[in-house]
């Protein structure tokens, strides 16, 4: 165990945890905005798979990281528009619609990969940028300030979204339609449009999460997300619908997973306990959810369609 608590291992673990946390954080932040408006989206994982594939395909064909990222965002926007149409205009049941989006993303990304790519082929990964001055801080710089731009964006988005939800007119409208859409409507707030914009923001973040994942790995294969989007939805509950809470949950999940990997590599965790240790991040999240369950409450109108 002493081997784990060395500076080099801790730095490597923190850096790894931040990398692992990034897609969870992006997807969780987006889902938070949607849920604050009263719309649950269980299709996050499917949107991530679609955006990951199209970002990867763009990278293969055009070789532009910027274009690939924009395509990932664009896929999220398109899927958001579809989901908004289904849940806001058609008022379909949100849980079932989300599962439909997930299945579509899983299947269509798989189909497109087979037809357009075939075998996995590597593409250039997102380069890491050291933040001037901060990256030069011994050890801390390596752990916290040597990451790719999408990682920085994810963490920078936390205070921005928190401020938006708390202090802007749009943010207050989002919270109002998520808590009491009838009251918001009586005050002149367009429940439909507010929810639609919140869904678009949420899916854009999911699209960015998919792009961040695939461009960090530099390769795509079917079912790349492996359920990551569903964990992101759970992290929204873990974070009590607050961006800072989501960040805490994502970091906890990432750091626990990274610690387990490092301990296995150092042979601190014996191979006989390997499979049990692999469950640690999920177990920790579930325990946290159980503890938090009675202390926080979801937006009152979550999953409830609105009609006058």
């Amino acid at each position: 165990m002493r081997d784990f608590f060395t500076l080099s291992v801790i730095v490597a673990t923190v850096a790894s945890g931040i990398r692992l946390a990034t897609p969870y954080l992006l997807a969780g932040l987006g889902e938070t905005v949607g849920q604050k408006s009263g719309v649950l989206n269980l299709g996050v994982d499917g949107v991530m798979q679609l955006s990951a594939f199209f970002a990867y395909w763009t990278m293969l064909e055009r070789g532009s990281l910027i274009l690939a990222t924009l395509v990932g965002i664009g896929v999220g926007l398109v899927m958001g528009a579809i989901y908004a149409f289904v849940t806001v205009v058609l008022q379909a049941q949100q849980g079932i619609s989300g599962i439909g989006i997930f299945l579509f993303g899983l299947g269509f990304s798989d189909l497109m990969f087979r037809r357009q790519v075939g075998s996995p082929r590597p593409v250039p990964q997102l380069p890491e940028y050291g933040i001037p001055f901060l990256a030069d801080i011994p050890n801390v710089g390596d752990a916290l300030f040597q990451h790719n731009l999408l990682t920085y964006f994810a963490f920078a988005a936390v205070p921005v979204l928190a401020l938006m939800l708390r202090s802007t007119t749009f943010g207050m409208n989002v919270r109002a339609v998520g808590e009491n859409p009838q009251a918001a409507d009586s005050l002149g707030v367009s429940v439909g449009w507010t929810r639609a914009f919140a869904i678009l923001i949420g899916n854009t973040f999911a699209g960015l999460a998919g792009a961040a994942l695939v461009l960090e790995l530099g390769i795509f294969q079917p079912n790349l997300t492996a359920g990551l989007g569903f964990i992101a939805v759970a992290l929204v509950y873990f974070g009590a619908w607050r961006p800072v809470g989501i960040m805490s949950g994502a970091l906890l999940y990432g750091l626990v997973a990274a610690s387990v990997l490092q301990m296995k590599a150092l042979q601190i965790i014996p191979r006989s306990a390997s499979d049990i240790a692999a469950m640690a991040p999920a177990i920790l999240t579930i325990l946290a959810l159980i503890v938090l369950a009675g202390r926080v409450s979801a937006p009152a109108a979550l999953t409830r369609p609105f009609s006058r």
Partner: peptide, 25 residues
């Protein structure tokens, strides 16, 4: 040698970080 089992057949991200952990060591 050092061996890391990720616990998943399909988690590409975790497998990548497991490889990175080995390189870190």
């Amino acid at each position: 040698t050092s061996v890391v089992y990720t616990g998943s057949f399909s988690d590409v991200q975790l497998m990548a970080e497991a490889a990175q952990a080995h390189i870190d060591q």
